[in-house]
Nucleic acid binder design. Structure first.
Lengths: 341, 341
DNA sequence: GCGCGCTATGACGACGTTGTCAATTGCGAT
DNA sequence: ATCGCAATTGACAACGTCGTCATAGCGCGC
């Protein structure tokens, strides 16, 4: 492999001078610089990061440790956000998935340390509370889409499920809906509770009572292998005489089954029932006809902001103590309309 | 950061002896070994990969270069397969996404080289033909889900779209269907042609004529921002008097729209129309009710096999010249049944 | 003419690790 | 007793890069 020494030899200068050219340091004549640059091009020299790291003990590498994110279709946008920021700022990224195993997680932290990463982005597939198995060493860490048990311990950044569900509820209310169904997400998920809570509070503030609401469980059990009642629940809900004129779905994926249930009963969307989802999982929201109105989880921003924050943390700047929350934008498409009269 | 030297000092041996212990080399007494291991534990020593690499010029790192894979919900299983293999075999993985930009791709190859990766897995989101912008340097490379323009140039491994579609067609034929619809995937995609071709050939071998078939374009335009006719095409197809009793969908995602189109016309699945998909994109196949019968793209295996192959390549073994193909397994669920009579 | 400060360059060592080779010890065979 | 050999250990160099410090040339003000 061609090294700085061979370049130096080719250009007839010392290796330190080559180093200066590479790193854009001053005190090199234009003439020398050009000779060196030519040699670099001719030999196809590419700096060796490992050697550089050994000297500087700053790897310019971030580690991403996730449960399943980068191997699961849902929250890939977090990773995309991180990568985009990293590219733009000359950072390299190491990704590893625990697959849910905590032995594996311990190994990964070791592996990261052996690569002398500068910091870790701890990312989860769905919003939850976890304590990273960091070992006793302290490495700058930002948690994305999750937060630690012991509140203010690590910086964290999460989507605002509450606000998203509130906006969605208001949206339906503003369109005249007064009997609204809600099919719950798996209650294990942190977002599930918040979304439902927002739905309850917002409708109640608006003057609706529990009687106007029709809330049922859509799925439960361990995440990824849950029991699925969505189709049955939606069917039952829509078969009632005083059926809801709008249904909020725990997430977009569940909305597929609600669509099918509604259609099987001969109901048209949105003329007979309005349906809204949550997440803005494009594969679903765009494939459904009519396309699904939903609240977008700000995954991309979570990733970008998290990376930026980690960078600040490493630089020793701005150490906010606790957690931040990013709002969910309502994406209006055509699955919800004014209440039929 | 604690180094091998501090461990040596603590254990009262030379650093070379510590190195021997770490690497499990022979010629260390049990007693010495234990003293060293204790020192390692006490100090929390973790080997520095960068320093190791500098000596050995073998990084034990594979680079994954993709267009969008790791940031897109579809083919994440390829990455999962690679990662699983890598974990099991002590390899580290560097992932980078070009986002489709070829300048970016050139940068990434440089970046990989600067990290002295041992080899590259070149992965695409959907099956296609590409020529990697590798620059002139030759790095062991295996292409996954794609293949080079100039056939035998690089080893490649792809799913067998043809066989998958043939099996699916046979499945429908065996169930008595004699009028079959086909809604085409975007023709830009390599898999699209092969799947359609398999459908045509298999039905024709079975004795069906073009008249028994009803083939229409579901989408076209640039991938990711295509024009979508699926719902309209399915509706039209199913409104005919001699409508097909079964429809093959270009992929699973498109099947959502076919379901909705069928249901909007009051058709029951599978009693009135059978529907089959392609890909086994779980988010869709499991959410649809009835669940979708489909052919599974062997993404996980593609990743695992690709990584293994790359490893062999690096080790200098088994240099098969050309491309390999992995079969698609038919996953029977409940969206297809015997033809109604 | 002398010293000063600035520009331009190179010699050298250090980072953490491992390969090479030499040194030391013990033991069985000659 | 001597030799050969295996087991055990360490000293030292080298990998590629960059930080430190020294050196040399040059122009400027006194």
């Amino acid at each position: 492999m061609v090294s700085i020494v061979s370049v130096a030899k080719a250009a007839g200068v010392s290796n330190k001078t080559v180093s200066r050219v590479i790193n854009g340091e001053p005190y090199v004549t234009e003439q020398t610089r050009e000779r060196v640059e030519k040699a670099i091009r001719d030999l196809g020299y590419i700096p060796n990061m490992a050697a550089r790291l050994i000297r500087s003990s700053r790897s310019n590498t971030f580690g991403i440790i996730t449960d399943y994110v980068s191997t699961t279709p849902y929250s890939v946008d977090i990773v995309r956000g991180i990568q985009d920021w990293a590219n733009a700022n000359g950072k390299t990224i190491l990704i590893a998935n625990t697959g849910g195993s905590s032995e594996r997680e311990v190994e990964i932290w070791k592996m990261f340390q052996s690569h002398r990463i500068d910091g870790v982005l701890y990312v989860t597939m769905y919003r939850r509370i976890v304590d990273p198995e960091t070992g006793d060493v302290s490495i700058p860490t930002v948690m994305i889409n999750c937060r630690p048990q012991t509140r203010e311990l690590l910086p964290s950044i999460e989507p605002d499920d509450y606000q998203g569900a509130r906006d969605l509820t208001q949206y339906l209310l503003e369109r005249g809906h007064r009997r609204i169904g809600y099919i719950r997400l798996n209650p294990i998920l942190l977002g599930a509770e918040l979304r439902l809570e927002a739905f309850r509070r917002t409708t109640s503030e608006f003057g609706l009572t529990e009687n106007d609401l029709s809330i049922s469980l859509g799925m439960d059990g361990p995440v990824g292998a849950e029991n699925n009642y969505v189709f049955a629940a939606a069917t039952e809900m829509l078969k009632q005489d005083d059926r809801p004129t709008a249904i909020m779905s725990g997430n977009d994926e569940m909305a597929i089954q609600i669509y099918i249930a509604a259609m099987a009963l001969g109901l048209r969307i949105p003329q007979d029932v309005s349906i809204v989802g949550f997440d803005d999982f494009r594969t679903v929201t765009m494939a459904l006809k009519p396309e699904l109105t939903t609240a977008a989880l700000p995954y991309y921003d979570l990733g970008r902001e998290g990376a930026k924050w980690l960078n600040d943390l490493i630089a020793g700047e701005k150490i906010y103590p606790g957690g931040r929350v990013v709002s969910c934008k309502l994406v209006e498409r055509s699955s919800a309309a004014f209440r039929p009269h």
